[in-house]
Structures are given as structure tokens and as C-alpha cells.
């Protein structure tokens, strides 16, 4: 029982660090993107760039604001889902099939959101 509690505390600690790292990393990208946007002489109220995942690597290598901003936004949106993936792994190790099922279903709902977004885009 004690070992299970300590494993669970370890899982929560891992998730906490993942959330913190994801947030700080994404904010750093947004900071770089916003600084580049201002250096490009553009206003944040100008119509923003369209979301094109394939263009992000090129924009980052070219030090263009759009790539950093989109990667930061993607990082923020993905951080809570990454926490759920960590829970799937952690609860699998604990042998807690009910929580594994719950975590997998959350990921299925997120994928449903991607499908719903793509279908209407």
C-alpha cells in the first residue's frame, strides 16, 4: 500500500513538472514570437497568419514571428494532453485499469475535437 502511494505521488510529481515545463517552454516561444512580430514592424491587431503546421519549421529557421507564435500556441494546447498521456503510462504501471481507460477516453475526446475542427475548417 505504501509503495502504491509513493508511486502515485511520483506520478503526480511527474505530471506537475510536465505542466510547468510545457507552460514555461511555450511562453518562451510566445515571447520570442511577439518580439519578432514587433521587430517586423507589425501590430498584434493585424490579421494573424493562417495556421499551417507544415510551414512552422521554415518560419522558425527564417526567424519569422508566425512560426514561434504557432509553436508556442501548439505547445500550450498540447501540454494538458501530454499530462494525460503521462497518466496513461503512470496508471498502467500502477495496474489501475479504470484510470487508464479514463485517460485513454480523454485522449479519444481530444482526437474527436481534432476531427470536428478539421471537418469544419
Amino acid at each position: 500500500m505504501e509503495s502504491r502511494r509513493s508511486l502515485e505521488a511520483g506520478l503526480e510529481g511527474t505530471i506537475a513538472r510536465l505542466l510547468t515545463a510545457g507552460t514555461y517552454g511555450s511562453i518562451a516561444l510566445l515571447l520570442a514570437g511577439t518580439a519578432l512580430l514587433l521587430l517586423e514592424g507589425r501590430s498584434p491587431l493585424d490579421l494573424g497568419p493562417a495556421f499551417d503546421p507544415a510551414a512552422i519549421p521554415g518560419e522558425i529557421l527564417g526567424l519569422r514571428s508566425a512560426g514561434f507564435l504557432w509553436l508556442g500556441i501548439l505547445g500550450l494546447i498540447a501540454t494538458p494532453s501530454a499530462r494525460v498521456v503521462a497518466a496513461v503510462i503512470g496508471y498502467s504501471r500502477l495496474g489501475d485499469t479504470r484510470m487508464v481507460a479514463v485517460a485513454v477516453l480523454i485522449l479519444v475526446v481530444i482526437v474527436a475535437g481534432v476531427v470536428a475542427g478539421t471537418a469544419g475548417g
Partner: peptide
């Protein structure tokens, strides 16, 4: 995001 409802310039 996928329906174009997030403005990256304003969000940053």
C-alpha cells in the same frame, strides 16, 4: 485552432 478561430498575433 483548426477552424481559424485563434489569432496568433493577438494571442502572443
Amino acid at each position: 485552432l483548426l477552424r481559424g478561430g485563434i489569432d496568433a498575433n493577438a494571442a502572443g
